[in-house]
């Protein structure tokens, strides 16, 4: 047994490398800086630009109710949302769930957040002011607020979420979907579907859309912590449609290494929620699989742009299938 073999089999470093786990440095150098031209970043870092682009390319997105881009218009929020039962206010340049305010219902001029907590119009206006001042944007740059219609959770996910809307993250590499996971909000994540805030991440097999494995705060789980629903029963409906939507996002942005966040709306079907040019690495933990072998496989394809979306989806479904651990 030589040293190299020892390193590969006995050290954490070597075994991670053997499993093809993608690290932060490698992601930044080999994939993001190589496949994501800087000039394209604004398309995804600004949610309004993403939305406009999506509409141009026929990609479905949650309806935009309005945009508030200056302090003077903050008062208009009441009129803007007049008669709309639920909406969501978010900073255009926010990330990681920061500054997202979801209003579930409005009863007699009182607004209610998803967790049932009432909130006054004044609070909402202050929240918008904070968004405009850049409190939630990177580097504190001034920002504007998007007002979106509420996404209604599809029945298939009802039992798998607590308060928030679950979303599907798909990593799309050079137009091919390579790995995916569902993020389920729960009580400990305060209704937010962001993993580092305590949401449950569920690895999804690329062929069927069925769950393979689930983790919460880095630890494996088998049931949703609040609804107690066995996660093995989770299957993403309209799976092929979801993957095709994800591929279309690559075609419209040109970003080679892309994280696509999709939601399934009860009425409108798969919608694009947001795009990410620096998608995180936790998806590997949720899937208990490394990204590197899949990325290398796609890298070896000579002319990926020759494949139409349907073929790309088919390719990924045959090559990136996984057995369920649940």
């Amino acid at each position: 047994m030589n040293l190299l073999q020892y390193w590969r089999e006995r050290t954490v470093y070597g075994r991670l490398a053997g499993k093809g786990i993608l690290g932060m440095n490698c992601r930044n150098i080999r994939y993001i800086s190589r496949y994501n031209p800087r000039t394209l970043y604004p398309l995804v870092d600004d949610k309004l630009k993403t939305k406009t682009l999506a509409l141009e390319h026929g990609v479905n997105v949650p309806d935009l109710i309005g945009v508030i881009d200056n302090q003077h218009d903050v008062r208009k929020i009441a009129k803007m949302t007049d008669g709309i039962p639920g909406f969501c206010i978010k900073p255009a340049k926010g990330s990681g769930g920061k500054g997202i305010l979801v209003i579930d219902r409005v009863v007699d001029g009182v607004y209610y957040k998803t967790n049932g907590q009432p909130i006054s119009l004044q609070d909402i206006q202050r929240h918008i002011s904070n968004i405009l001042a850049g409190l939630f944007s990177l580097g504190g740059k001034t920002d504007f607020a998007l007002v979106e219609s509420l996404i209604k959770v599809d029945d298939a996910f009802r039992q798998f979420t607590h308060e928030g809307v679950p979303d599907l993250r798909v990593i799309v590499f050079r137009g091919f979907p390579v790995m995916s996971m569902m993020r389920l909000s729960c009580a400990s994540s305060k209704g937010k579907a962001n993993l580092h805030q305590g949401a449950v991440g569920v690895g999804i097999s690329m062929d069927t859309g069925g769950a393979v494995r689930a983790v919460q705060s880095g630890r494996p789980v088998t049931h949703h912590p609040d609804t107690k629903q066995p996660l093995s029963e989770l299957v993403v409906p309209q799976w092929i449609g979801m993957l095709e939507l994800a591929c279309a996002c690559y075609d419209m942005t040109g970003l080679g290494y892309l994280g696509v966040d999709l939601v399934l709306d009860k009425n409108r079907g798969p919608l694009l929620l947001e795009l990410n040019a620096r998608p995180g690495l936790s998806i590997q933990v949720a899937n208990n699989a490394g990204l590197l072998p899949r990325l290398r496989r796609i890298e070896s394809i000579k002319k990926p742009e020759k494949f139409p979306i349907v073929e790309r989806v088919a390719y990924s479904r045959t090559h990136f299938a996984a057995q369920s651990d649940l």
């Binding site: 954490v12 440095n25 590997q284």
Partner: peptide
């Protein structure tokens, strides 16, 4: 392009 020390713990 290798792993960070913290990633060895994380993964």
């Amino acid at each position: 392009t290798g792993y960070r020390l913290s990633e060895l713990r994380r993964f």
